[in-house]
Design a protein around this nucleic acid. Sequence first.
DNA 1: GTCTATAGAAGGATAGAC
DNA 2: GTCTATCCTTCTATAGAC
Lengths: 189, 189
Amino acid sequence: MRQGAGTRPRGAGRAQLHDTALRLFARDGVEGTSLQTIADEMGVTKAAVYYHYRSKDDLVLSVLAPMFEELDAVVRKTEAHRSRPARLEEFLTGMVTLIVDNHSRFAMLVRDPYVSRLMESHLDLVAWFHRIVTSVGAGTDLPGRAALLIFLSGMTAPLSDPEMVALEPAEQRELLLDCGRRLLQIRRR
Amino acid sequence: MRQGAGTRPRGAGRAQLHDTALRLFARDGVEGTSLQTIADEMGVTKAAVYYHYRSKDDLVLSVLAPMFEELDAVVRKTEAHRSRPARLEEFLTGMVTLIVDNHSRFAMLVRDPYVSRLMESHLDLVAWFHRIVTSVGAGTDLPGRAALLIFLSGMTAPLSDPEMVALEPAEQRELLLDCGRRLLQIRRR
DNA sequence: GTCTATAGAAGGATAGAC
DNA sequence: GTCTATCCTTCTATAGAC
């Protein structure tokens, strides 16, 4: 735990750095964003960035961290349900909320080749995906699996559209939910 | 036309280079793949690569070129139909075939941040997308637009799945077509 | 068509002053 | 917590021999 509750506040500058890095990573990709560029954007030097983060990978992982916490919460809440339809519904709504709240982070995860490689060595996403498939039931057969993959990798795209970003989060959720239900063939509650 | 029908065959080495570059670009991203790495993989030197391509961007664009030709063909065939349902059906089947035949190239286009930036300066994809939306009719309203964006950016994901790559192209097309029809709400012929 | 050699810039990362 | 200065590596790209 680096920024735990009891630690002395390392806070303000670090949070700003966080946001700047996220924005640039999402726009230009991790390998298209140098620490120099991030530092310039913030009006500080590279060395100042290295005070807060040991390495570029450390920065990337810190930027993504909030999403992984939420991802873990979604999976746990999903597995708490007994029936498969209930699990699928919980998973769908949970993921849509996660993506709306973390669309830059999730876009990095599914789009950025550097992040994909980083995950292979730091987090076993394949195991996580398998856990979803078996517990949720979606993706057990090949057509369901295809639909689930399209859902997971495609849902961030609408949130980059100018007309979509102007909407309220609640409206964004509704649009994504409709698409997700059609794709995964879930009848409306 | 660089490798037109009548030109003296620059072919063999160039085609190999093409395939190697495509494979590495798709796996590690354009910025995660140096010309040195490509040369090493082929057992030649960097300078040999520069004999065939003026710059890295030139190589990237050459690798993507076949897809853009096919993309243009899909749009033209789509616009040739008179009714909107027929256009939508033509667009869907055309895009699915394109993605199955060019899944690495299309994945580069929708996933790689470097390619996205390169396109902004070399091809107006936004204009192309607008042409699709207006002529096909899908995406005219916001929900339709969201579905179309999910479709376009998500369809490559299943083709990276181990179970999916083992299938025949015809089977891959069927799976993607089913998902596309559900997402875009097209009744089966 | 491929090589060696190298220029020139930019990247990640560290040391040590303030 | 931020700076200057520096190190080492890697990158794109070019020149010129074979």
